[in-house]
Design a protein around this nucleic acid. Structure first.
Lengths: 135, 135
DNA sequence: TTAAATGCAAAAAATTTGCAGACGT
DNA sequence: ACGTCTGCAAATTTTTTGCATTTAA
């Protein structure tokens, strides 16, 4: 049993070839949108249906196996769930990168200012990546 | 000429009753989704069409008159453009509040870590608002 | 007067659902 | 064997577009 299977089982998600393809695609800090994912999977798995991708994305979201990243002015992308982190997205090419930042004190400030009980934070920086800066 | 008209003109947006309704609804740190907005406007303006609301939202986004707020697990809401700020959203009732936080040093860190040139930041805290905590 | 906005209906895009057959456990 | 997943098609939902008419400047 390979590690992708293991990952799925740990989240109580039944292992199917289609689901394994999704994990393969997203493994290793990869961020993809539904269409990207669909087309990528279709290459190795031509019979896959878009509906199946949607269903599996929803299952995986429900089981906290993947996360949706909502990006200003762009469509959402998805990633495998890992420790909380923030994102940097390139406004030119759309590339997304993970970034570890300590948001604790900000979160504290937010609680003090609003009296909400803060449970999570979503932080997305937008800018220009080194590649796009060069060209 | 009232202040809503003025606001629109400052952003080079032609003044129409439908657009004035949108401004009235959003004025004063109000955050609303498309449907909410549509239904609110329909009350004072029964003939308004959903297509018009979409078109106007898009025009206003293009002209930087309003901003879209992408919220985890929820539909987007819109607000009048003002100085950069962050948001706190209640996971129970969906209420959104503005919050001023200094993200400068975080943004610097993000630049140092990723070598992106950061242009903007979107920060949304999710939690439970004081009202919902009480009940 | 002229370009742009409106409302409607239709079209397109995005997402979900129902179901028969296939598959995982 | 049982319940779940898949693929397909159809149904919804969301958003955009085309066009005739009205309206703002």
């Amino acid at each position: 049993m390979n590690s992708y299977e293991q990952l799925l089982r740990e989240h109580k998600i039944k292992v199917t070839p289609q689901r394994l393809s999704i994990v393969e695609e997203l493994y290793g800090c990869v961020h993809m949108g539904i269409d990207e994912l669909y087309m990528a999977i279709k290459k190795k798995f031509p019979s896959v249906s878009l509906a199946t991708v949607y269903k599996n994305i929803n299952t995986m979201l429900d089981n906290d196996f993947i996360q949706e990243i909502k990006i200003p002015n762009e469509k959402s992308k998805y990633e495998l769930t890992k420790e909380a982190h923030s994102h940097v997205v390139c406004q030119e090419c759309g590339k997304v990168e993970d970034i570890m930042l300590d948001l604790y004190s900000l979160s504290q400030k937010a609680e003090n200012l609003t009296h909400y009980q803060i449970k999570e934070e979503a932080l997305v920086f937008s800018g220009i990546c080194p590649n796009c800066k060069a060209s």
